[in-house]
Amino acid sequence: MSARQTFTIEEIKDRLLAQIDQVVHRYAPPASGSYTDKGLYFTLNPGRADRSVGSFVVAVSGPRAGRWNDYATGQKGDLIDLIALSLGLSLPDAFREARAFLGLEHETPDIRRAREKAAADARARRLEAERTAAERARKKARQALAIWLSAEPQISGTPVEHYLRGRCIDLRALGRQPAALRYLRSCTFHHETMDPQTGEIHEVKVRLPAMVAAIDNGRGETVAVHRTYLAIGPSGRFEKAQIPDPVTGEILPAKKVLGDFRGGRIVLSSGHGPRGGKGCPLSKCPPGTRVYIAEGIETALSAVILKPEARVLAAISLSNMGQVHLPSNVAEVVLITDGDEHPQAVAQLDAAVKAHAAKGRRVRCWRSEIPGEDLNDALQRAMKEQEVE
């Protein structure tokens, strides 16, 4: 009887990665509604009573191949962790299960060489994908910074000011403008849609005025840029642009982000200093600092209007609210929710609460009593009620 062959943890992980499709279908099997999009496999979490596809995802290609996340619970890991999650195993038992799956208990020299080659090829592909993704991210960050720098620093008198005022956000009354916001007179809106019947790609490419916002990573670097495209609406005022999809005719989102904004934030207010005036940068905030985090820019600016003394950030997306980089002196976070009652949105908000709480912060949430109403909706409603009175 031959001696039991030994393999390092990394060797086992590389071999699993070389068979990633078989691994994920074994330990996170397809369910009703499962799908794969751009290298991401969405299915039910095999380790809990997951009722709907959407929050559990496994990367099956690209630089993060083999990594998975459950945005509803905050869980994440690699393929060994996936095996442990699926079967309810400890990590040592998960490694034993991985060995059995790979057939390493009874491996001939020829099979060993073939599997070593497959694992080496998979590792090389992963490293190349990581290099390509890193270079692509750097390129997008440079493009994002160039867009923001090309925009006008002052938004007073521009379509941006008129758009925000139409949302009851009066920066002149506030007495200051967030430095992260700028006005770009002509910004390219580009969208492509594939016709599902013919496979033909239809393109929309127009230039429109836009509100642009710098997204920083907490280290003073602009890593992405957010753009809100504007146009004169039926009211005769600047509103979010209404651009129809060339295939479906549905109105396309008028907001786009260029660059990787994971963990990033748009700083919209540093609050007040101890003697009045502008507060110190967030990176130098005093111990016990409270920070308000909203999903979108308009919601965050509504918080600034209502609480000028507060530190307010926009997280860009609900999934990023728990990932926003904050210094250790931040002791309390108030998450301003948009009132979305969709199960995935509820799960993402819960994950954000848990993520901040896990870092020792007190966490509170603001939610309107009216379902589906965000803070900007509430601000506009209050302003209209005042006018009626």
Rank of each mutant, 00 (worst) to 15 (best):
I215T: 02
E107F: 07
S34V: 10
Q344F: 10
A173M: 07
E309K: 11
A345W: 00
Y183I: 05
P209L: 14
L16A: 01
K139T: 14
T8V: 08
S319V: 12
K384I: 12
G259W: 03
S319G: 14
I232Q: 15
K307D: 09
P46W: 04
V204D: 07
E11L: 11
M211I: 05
P327E: 02
A303D: 05
I155N: 01
L184H: 14
E250L: 10
A144R: 00
K255Q: 12
M211H: 05
D78Y: 11
Q154W: 06
R367N: 08
M383P: 00
G249W: 10
V225R: 00
Y71E: 06
A49W: 00
Q22R: 14
K354W: 09
E105W: 14
T289N: 06
G339T: 04
N329G: 06
A129Q: 01
H106S: 13
D81G: 15
A59K: 09
V363S: 04
D170N: 07
V312P: 00
I370R: 13
E130P: 00
G360H: 08
R115V: 03
R165M: 02
E332I: 09
A314N: 06
G273Q: 07
M211C: 12
F42G: 03
A122R: 02
V206K: 13
L164C: 00
A210F: 06
